[in-house]
Design a protein around this nucleic acid. Sequence first.
RNA 1: GUCCCUAUCGUCUAGCCCGGUCUAGGACAUUGGAUUUUCAUUCCAAGAACCGGGGUUCGAAUCCCCGUGGGGACGCCA
Length: 435
Amino acid sequence: MSDKVRVRFAPSPTGFFHIGSARTALFNWLYAKHTGGTFVLRIEDTDGERNREEYLNILKNGMRWLGLDWDEGPDVGGDYGPYFQSQRENIYLEFLEILRKKGRAYDKDGAVFFKVSGEKQILHDAVYGDVARIEEKDFPIFRSNGTPVFHFVNVVDDICMKITDVIRGQDHLTNTNKHIELFKAFDAPMPQFAHIPLILKSEGQGKMSKRDRGALIEEYQAKNFLPEAVRNYLCMLGWNPKNDKEIMDIGEIIKLFDFHGIVKSNARFDERKMAHFNTEHLRALPADKFCELAAASMKRDFTGMEEYANKVFALCQPKALNLEAFPSMVDFFFDDSYAFDPVAKEKVFKKGDPIARLVEIREMLKSESNFDGQALHDKICEAAESKGLKLAEYFSPLRLAVSGLAGGPDMVPMLDLLGGGRVSKRIDRALSELS
RNA sequence: GUCCCUAUCGUCUAGCCCGGUCUAGGACAUUGGAUUUUCAUUCCAAGAACCGGGGUUCGAAUCCCCGUGGGGACGCCA
């Protein structure tokens, strides 16, 4: 079918993968998936000569991490290559000839300029509707050093690669009439344009810049975010399925994605909401998958203790906020020399007599032959009742003693996992170090 | 400065195209409660918005105009 959708993402490798670019890539990818079309990755590397390979890797890496696989482009090839602009020089020269023959290109100051029509161009944008604008000045398409300029190569490549839909940031909206002029000058079929709103800084003015926190995909990779969570959040920034759902499976999003759901106004980035998406996706993970990721997030070797480790992870998954903080939450399960969190300590020592309570618990443990978390729990409850004390007066110090923390997984299964021997030793250590 | 886009809770948004069903819905965040065992979990609740002014209309968040705010483009960057 000749009307099969072909979209492209055309970044220039700059050494980082910006969240705004990532979302443009994502929307293109979504549209391709939704329509059963082709997603092309084209590298606009006309003037970045240094570290090109390394820069490109950051980009490819980030895209693969987000699951944005491309059907044509670097590494995978395709029928419309080459996919690097730096390798398409002769094509650009051919197209320049066409313009010259039509009298639409002329030399000036060593550069080549495109002669605009002087007519108002109307863009029928799939998101913004009809936008009319006139381009008054001729603009350069080849620099005096002989290299072609963005507007020109962009259009030429879109023609050559038979791109049907141009989905890109709204910052290109006022460039589009230049592009329309070029398409017309080449008598090429006009693609459908769909401009998408920009992502603004969470505070302050302007769009997200690479220096803003949360602006780079590399950050999320480094912080062990779930890629599906980042992708889901990005989907919801400037697009919505017209219902109340936010946390969604990518398959469902692909099914629902269309231009109608794209919002026109720019969106402010919110790292807290991003974190929320991450937590939700983490909790929703199947236990085995979560265990795998949890283990990888810790710099520890679990050989020989896989079963124990998996029990720990399974117990803690419902309480996990993110994988970045996860190791510090469960580390005490694997290390007896954990520190007592000063804030937790202060909190516990604020009321009652935690030392006395710990001594009591130690006595209870001594009188018990086979350790059983539930049995210890029940004993503590009895003791609390007979003394008229709140349960927290026992359990808070106990948690601090065995984990060093103020919060964590459910008490009874936690004690069972640690086992009686370790619980006793830890209480002893707490008594000597906290008294 | 010129041109283009845009405008609903603090933030992301639904509703707007096809005016009445909107005492404007959801989510994040915030605040307060509950889970008489911690807690970062879970549950419940609360506060919180149609930018301003003119029209059109019986009736406007919804349509039109003007302001204002926000964003973007005006490069031999992409």
